[in-house]
Design a binder for these strands. Sequence first.
DNA 1: ATGTGC
Length: 480
Amino acid sequence: MEITLRQIDKYRFLIPKQGNMYTDGIIYTTSEMLELIKNDQSLKQVANVACLPGIVGPSLAMPDIHEGYGFPIGGVAAFDLETGIISPGGVGYDINCGVRLLRSNLVKEDIIPVIEKLVDTLFFNIPTGVGSRRKDFKLNQTELKAVLKNGAKWAIKQGFGWSTDLEHIEAGGCLPQANPEFVSNKALERGKAQLGTLGSGNHFVEVGYVEEIYDEKIADAMGLFKNQVTVIIHTGSRGLGHQVCDDHIKVMLKAAAKYGISLPDKQLCCAPISSPEGQKYLAAMAAAANFAFTNRQMITHWVRESFEQFFKDSAEELGLDLIYDVCHNIAKIETHIYQGENKRLCIHRKGATRAFAPGHPEVPAAYREIGQPVLIPGDMGRYSYVLIGTKKAMEETFGSTCHGAGRVMSRHQAIKMAKGRNIAKEMRQKGIYVRGAGRYTLIEEISEAYKDVTDVIEVVHNAGISKKVARLKPMGVIKG
DNA sequence: ATGTGC
């Protein structure tokens, strides 16, 4: 099937329903950014997703779209709970990879003179890199299952965080469908010593500051102000989530055949949401999602402790409140208005962020009037953005927006291009102190390997599916 | 993304 693409308006492109597609594909992007993905499979993947049974509304993609396992990264797809499917490829290997943002009462001048020591402290306190594990903190099976069942509230109960954190996490930091019984022993084994570890790749903890405010009123409601120090934590469910994905892909390959679902690509393997296979994946995915929420909560605790050690002041006094925590690799059961009626749907967001509008009951009380905070990290050398969900997102994208910058270069290409360069030194000259765990981490994560996140943000802001609130600038980063 | 592989 040759992909035909038609421009709808300045920021939207249509793949009209054709062949085996049940519905259209719609990509939020610009013609310039489309050029960057013309040689990969991502547009074909948007069309492929539209061929899956029970899809409701268009197969959507965000401006940070690039090729992924089966579904594109940057993809959003909604499925009917009775006739639709659920697919591990629509969630991604890193189940509930996500981002959280902490505020503070500090300003950038407080940090600049001490950034190296502060980042070193974080690097020491938070296990980082491939296979990172905690030496002091290995859970037994019973405790781990409690984590998988209860999510972030388990951490709060153990003293890793504040009770006020919970209401500032998507879904309250716990997906209720979680059932650890459907998480394999192998996945459990991998998870036991990984709670509170950062991992590798694009995962990071970043100390930055608010460089620009676009909406004073909304920024103020979130507790953000110009030059304020912020902390972003970006990580997911580590080896546990990866193993859950792996295990259930094997099941889904058989299930798709069993239920007579014809797949344009094996990587789209799936099962009806209502089938035992679908329900088991949903329960295991939710358990892995809860592990990821708890992981970010534990890291938050150690970030607060690091700041306390460093500034000899309590985290409460330092105002290190959690602004919000978003998932960007997840399938959620949500109610949306579709063709004038309330409909319960399974929304797959793979490299896409929920962006619920003001007034939505799932937006925490503190943000009910302004809308759900949307957290979009860029690459380590440029910016990150804070946005807010909109009514238009509810109408057009099942309350979804982009998740990041999106790579333009493979890890391999990046290594080839940056050979012989001292990336840490280059970053230091730009005023950013970086500590990377792996031998190739910094080189794989160079700015040039990513789109400029600003271009991505301009699309979602101008298309109206989220609204810019603030731009953050990194000062210090720890990378896996 | 990953008890990656470059």
